[in-house]
Amino acid sequence: MKRTLKALVFFGVLLVAWQALVAARIWSPVLVPSPASVGRYLWEAVTDGTLASATLVTVQRLGLGYVAGLLLALPLGLLTARFQLLADTLGLLALGLQALPSVCWVPLALLWFGQTEGAMFFVVVMGTLWSVIIATDSGVRNVPPIFARAARTMGSRGLHTWLRVILPAALPYIVGGMKQGWAFAWRSLMAAEIYVTILSGFGLGHLLHYGRELHAMEQVIGIMIVLLAIGLLADKILFSPWERFLHRRWGTAR
């Protein structure tokens, strides 16, 4: 509770500083809108439903692509860790593509899929896939061999060993990779939404984009605040429980 309070105070101070800067009239209010005008925009966006529908569209795209990316990446990462041939081929490709800024997938996605949900899906999957493959692979390679040996003496074989021993033992790495994959997916989706108009759904990136087109700075900043909140929320809801679990079990909490 105390920590929440401190965070609230911190954001309060930021807000006050922002208001003070606006009041000092150093920059034009067109470029630096007041917190109140941003608040007013957000309130309108909430009441007329645009914010909710845009958030829903974006989060849906993100969730769908991310889950698909994970479902694809986990087995692939296990396979590259298990078979040297796959590590030398697919693993190498993943290593290269992981470093590729994921926005680079957008032009390709557009040409292949057009201005459709398919393009969005593809971009998010590509954002997720490679870093989760790499993390799973290195996680598995870092599992102490003694775990698998001990499991074998107890009668564990094949798939059972992989699912019940190797996978959980690699979990600290995998969760790290999932977090990174999430960040990449989130970024690439925003880039795609700002870059491309998709007729089937109007996401947060589009709101941001039109804010710029209309010179509505309060909209741009308002949406950025929403994006920040989603990022924080995702971390708290999706990853914090896993990390708490890992810290408790592995004894790595400070």
Binding site: P144, F147, A150, A169, R249, W250, G251
Partner: peptide, 13 residues
């Protein structure tokens, strides 16, 4: 034939 190793090889999870 069960084995006990020098490191306990217990599963931390």
């Amino acid at each position: 034939r069960m084995v006990m190793f020098q490191e306990s090889a217990l599963f931390p999870w």
